[in-house]
């Protein structure tokens, strides 16, 4: 009997894995059978690669580089200033105040539109009579563009004839949206929530309707009270949808609300509340502070990238176990 050295099953070394990465010899190809042509795949992927390179990577790299420079306002070149644009932004009181408002705005919009969307979805899932009419009425607003919802919101809060302004007047409150900071903040949140409810409703409803009938029936027997049934059975089943929506809603309130703000303050931000994205636009295009605006862009890029990575990691897990 000879001594055979025991061999452990080895995982491929780092270099081998790197080579695999570059050469595309992945152990799990997308398809069992694939075409083996050197040139054809390039023909198919090239248009997208070109567009991504020119309109995504080039500007992104430029945002990062110009965040380290101070552009001469009269267009005479630029000087390298290191991290100055970043420290200027972060240490500015105005920037911090806007960051604070952005966080508050995101929490309010996300919290309200998620909970109202969930409430409506749970009820729409229950009713039988008129279910499709409710559904149609509740998803229609998804189609409306943020600037259009901003315009409608602006009319509803108009100081001469807006119904909401009149309602406030019954209670003896003079509402001044566009002038008073808190009033404007209230109006912005209301419009942003209004616009986002249908999106959350659609996802929650489709999540609820994918719960198998057997589970529902078992739940009806096990838990008599509606609230307990919701808390112990429905909510855990909805958790993946809710997490996905949480990230989408935060991204929405940070970025997609730009148009709502721009329209509702009628292009005159003055001392009205605004979000960080609005400030990037304001400093870059109206203030001509390209370096400062780029530094703020990069800060936002980091925030969104972190959110998206969190979302992907989570989705991946959902795919594995779900």
């Amino acid at each position: 009997m000879t001594d055979t050295p025991m061999t452990l099953p080895q995982s491929p070394g780092l270099m081998a894995r790197l080579r695999g990465f570059w050469e595309g010899s992945s152990r799990n190809p997308a398809k069992r059978v694939q075409f083996d042509r050197p040139l054809t795949p390039w023909l198919f992927v090239l248009p997208q690669l070109l567009i991504v390179a020119i309109f995504f990577y080039w500007p992104s790299v430029q945002a990062v580089t110009s965040s380290f420079y101070l552009e001469d306002p009269f267009g005479f070149g630029s000087t390298f200033v290191g991290m100055d644009n970043y420290t200027d932004a972060i240490s500015s009181r105005e920037y911090r105040r806007i960051a604070g408002f952005t966080a508050f705005f995101a929490v309010m919009v996300t919290g309200l539109s998620l909970s109202i969307g969930l409430l409506l979805a749970v009820k729409a899932d229950k009713v039988i009579r008129g279910a499709s009419a409710y559904k149609t009425a509740l998803i229609a607003v998804y189609a409306i563009a943020p600037p259009v919802s901003g315009l409608i919101g602006m009319m509803f809060f108009d100081m001469h004839m807006g119904p909401f302004t009149e309602m406030a007047a019954w209670f003896g409150y003079e509402m001044k949206v566009g002038i008073n900071y808190n009033d404007t903040a209230f109006a912005l949140i209301l419009v942003a929530v209004w616009k986002q409810i249908p999106y959350n409703f659609i996802f929650f409803l489709s999540g609820l309707q994918s719960v198998p009938v057997s589970v529902r029936e078992a739940a009806l027997i096990d838990a008599r009270s509606g609230w307990r049934r919701f808390k112990d059975i429905v909510l855990p089943l909805l958790a993946p949808t809710a997490f996905f929506l949480l990230i989408i809603n935060i991204t929405y309130s940070l970025f997609d609300t730009f148009a709502i703000i721009d329209v509702m303050v009628k292009d005159k931000p003055a001392n009205n509340p605004m979000t960080l994205v609005y400030k990037v636009y304001l400093d870059g295009f109206k203030g001509n502070d390209i370096g400062g605006s780029s530094a703020q862009s990069v800060i936002l890029m980091v925030v969104v990238a972190a959110l998206t990575v969190a979302q992907f990691r989570f989705l991946e897990r959902r795919v594995h176990y779900g």
């Binding site: 990465f21 570059w22 050469e23 595309g24 992945s26 042509r37």
Partner: peptide, 18 residues
């Protein structure tokens, strides 16, 4: 559709980095 087709149906160098 074109890009997805290349990524799913072809075995070629640089597929993963792309």
């Amino acid at each position: 559709m074109m890009a997805a087709y290349a990524l799913v149906y072809f075995r070629f160098r640089f597929a993963t980095p792309i």
